[in-house]
């Protein structure tokens, strides 16, 4: 039995900063903050270049989570909020980012962030967040052309994966790898609902399945559920996955198997993280909006 106190769902929070940039020398510092239901990210750009980011767990209060994410990204850089010229909030808590100059939907932000990460070739984006899942089609500039979203339920989301990690006592970051350590691919768990899938998983363990086999079965069910959403929109490559689940190969490779298209992987040495795509897109919007504002005031 897993120990009561161990939190198997907990993923590692991340801070990154480009030490080669001296932000004081740049003219425009902008930030994007993505307050999701499960995780919050802040990205800081210096003259439109990625400077720093931080990813953290969302607390019970959106404004606090937004502040926590931004403070994390600024930490160690001797930067304060006043140094940031324009802030765009996104994510489900976007309207609750008190210091944001503007709120933009996560759909537009994920498309723009993916466009920055992959380049103009990215056409279809699957955003697998903590609370929901969306498929977005965009043009070569990262502008949204078409999107599809579903009423919110934990099946096929990061939160659903956290629940299973906890129920089976497997650290969430090991799930993808362990789901391939099996002799033969099992059928997906039959229940879509996370609550029912959890009891089904317990039943499968009692029936003698190994933990890895149950994980494979759950990852397969999640991939199946998400693929039905993807297949409603014809997938045009390049196909890219954003959000926390993008880091779970157990789900990603099973999605690729079902839809028959490979997702773009970021290079192994990248500093980028698919989980920050929304905040990155928001920061890019902030940079563009700041430039627009500056141009307008120069003309006035």
């Amino acid at each position: 039995m897993p120990e009561e106190t161990k939190e198997f769902w907990r993923w590692s929070e991340k801070v990154w900063r480009d030490e080669s940039i001296d932000w004081r020398g740049s003219r425009a510092i902008t930030a994007g903050i993505d307050v999701g239901s499960v995780s919050s990210q802040a990205v800081i750009l210096a003259d439109g270049r990625l400077y720093a980011y931080h990813s953290t767990r969302t607390g019970s209060n959106s404004p606090d989570s937004a502040r926590k994410a931004l403070n994390g990204a600024m930490a160690g850089a001797d930067m304060s909020q006043e140094d940031i010229r324009y802030v765009v909030g996104t994510g489900y808590g976007r309207v609750n980012v008190p210091f944001a100059n503007r709120a933009i939907t996560e759909i537009a932000c994920h498309a723009r962030g993916a466009n920055y990460m992959v380049g103009p070739s990215v056409k279809t984006i699957l955003d697998m967040g903590g609370q929901d899942c969306k498929v977005i089609r965009c043009d070569e500039k990262g502008k949204v052309q078409n999107f599809i979203m579903n009423d919110k339920c934990a099946a096929g989301t990061g939160r659903g994966m956290e629940v299973i990690a906890d129920a089976l006592g497997v650290p969430i970051e090991d799930i993808g790898r362990r789901s391939f350590e099996i002799d033969e691919e099992p059928p997906p768990v039959s229940n879509v609902c996370t609550v029912f899938a959890k009891s089904e998983a317990t039943g499968l363990l009692k029936a003698g399945w190994s933990v890895n086999r149950v994980l494979a079965s759950y990852c397969a069910a999640m991939a199946e559920r998400v693929s039905s959403l993807i297949e409603r929109m014809s997938v045009e490559p390049d196909f890219f996955i954003t959000g926390g689940i993008a880091k779970n190969e157990g789900v990603v490779r099973r999605i690729e198997r079902i839809i028959g298209i490979e997702a773009v992987r970021l290079p192994a040495d990248t500093v980028l993280d698919p989980q920050i795509a929304g905040a990155l897109g928001a920061a890019l919007f902030a940079h563009a909006l700041l430039k627009k504002e500056q141009k307008a005031s120069a003309q006035a």
């Binding site: 052309q145 078409n146 999107f147 599809i148 979203m149 579903n150 009423d151 339920c153 959403l229 409603r232």
Partner: peptide, 16 residues
Amino acid sequence: MIANYGYQDGSGEYYI
């Protein structure tokens, strides 16, 4: 932009 808002009920999956 084409916006698809989906939902599921007892009889299937639908989109507006």
